[in-house]
Design a protein around this nucleic acid. Structure first.
Lengths: 239, 239
DNA sequence: ACTCGACAAATTGGATCCAATATAATTATA
DNA sequence: TATAATTATATTGGATCCAATTTGTCGAGT
């Protein structure tokens, strides 16, 4: 696909991920192609791609809409993420942790240690933690060296909350966030320890729990949105 | 998508799955649209869809090609299948086995028992076994009631050997095939027992081993193709 | 025999148009 | 006023064309 086609795809994905196009919003080829200043062809192809990814759904002759994602679907996806990342952890432990991979993971741990050693956390710290969290998880997946797994993880990651590319934080309760992220960070430590010891079952178990911990937090927010106020998503840049 | 577009997609997928278009074969929009008697537009869309599914790969200005799948990729996919179906088994055991679901699974077990009670197996028996195997596995996935899981399984199933929709059999060694399939069938029995008892960990473990057993067989064939002669794939009808 | 350059052919990406069909809006009728 | 019928509009699917770019072929020169 050429540059313009790629641009349309990325642009549309951005509009969805950023909330400019909210879930349930209807979109159609002609108005969007006019808005983006291109012909219908690249828009049509982008629609198909994003439909196949699960971000859009077809509304027949009314066009397409941004697919709404319910609570159960997110929970389902977290469950799948848990077993997939658990598999990654087990594979890495079984294969042995390479020097290079170990170095990357240790660097993430050290950075996190530095962040949490202050006893408090700022919004900027959150962003830093998010970056290192992404590097950590992606490194683990890459180290597993299983193409089907990498693909399955990527495909499962299109939902907020279900993916390590997006963490939800309550900026009005930073002390609580501090404790929560520190716990997640300790789980990273435990994982690396298990990997170094070649303990596959332990590594798998801690990664599964790691995913569930994220799901538990999601449930707190989702079920009590009024009580917990506004939530900020720190997300990955659009692909 | 309209009927013609769907037809082109299904047709092309059939041509790939059946081997009419062999791995590595180059295909392009214009010749294929002429061959199928349609314009380029539906062919273009089908190419994109199948590219996204992983069946085609882009060759730049030389068009597309049927993607070759190597041994490791298949093994990787079996590994992922193992943990996904293991998750399905665990979820079903945790949720409790419904009457309806139990009835379907038990019917599959009974049919299998009848097949294997003869002490020998014919090619037609193989086909029957394949059908009930598919129903069994798909029922399990459906009973898990996890949308992300169903999607992940479906997406992982595009490779032969890695999917329960395709089993490889050596028609020249039916006694050996009998024993192998009987073992797989016994694993189905064990799974249902675990489900009925609500034993999540046991259910998960037997399903994982079930997938690995298929992978082991694949390795026997792949590594010794000369020795084992021709292999017949009994596959699902194209979707 | 090999290499290079010119030209032709092949291929995709995008634009535009037409047809079919569903949806929405308007008008007529009870 | 409410409902049904009619008309207008919106939308996708497919066909066709043009442009850009890559790839392949052929001929000439060394």
């Amino acid at each position: 696909m050429a540059k313009q086609g790629q641009w349309v795809l990325v642009k549309l994905r951005q509009m969805i991920m950023s909330g400019d196009l909210a879930p349930g919003t209807r979109i159609a080829e002609i108005p969007l192609s006019e808005q983006l200043g291109v012909s219908r062809t690249p828009v049509r192809l982008a629609f198909r791609t994003l439909e196949q990814e699960g971000l859009l759904q077809r509304e027949g002759r009314r066009g397409f809409s941004i697919r709404k994602v319910g609570e159960k679907e997110i929970r389902d996806a977290v469950e799948v993420r848990g077993v997939l990342e658990g598999l990654a952890a087990r594979l890495v432990a079984e294969q042995g942790l390479s020097k290079k991979g170990r170095a990357v993971l240790l660097e993430c741990l050290e950075k996190g240690d530095t962040l949490f050693s202050k006893g408090t956390i700022t919004e900027e710290d959150m962003s830093s933690y998010h970056d290192l969290n992404m590097v950590f998880h992606q490194t683990l997946i890459d180290l597993a060296d299983n193409s089907a797994l990498s693909l399955a993880v990527a495909r499962n990651n299109h939902l907020p909350f279900a993916s390590y590319s997006s963490i939800a934080v309550d900026l009005k309760a930073l002390d609580r966030e501090f404790m929560r992220l520190k716990l997640a960070h300790m789980q990273h430590h435990i994982l690396v320890d298990a990997l170094e010891r070649g303990q596959g079952a332990r590594a798998e178990a801690v990664m599964r729990e790691h995913a569930y911990a994220g799901a538990l937090y999601f449930e707190m927010f989702w079920g009590n949105r009024r009580r917990y106020g506004d939530v900020t998503f720190i997300t990955a840049a659009a692909e």
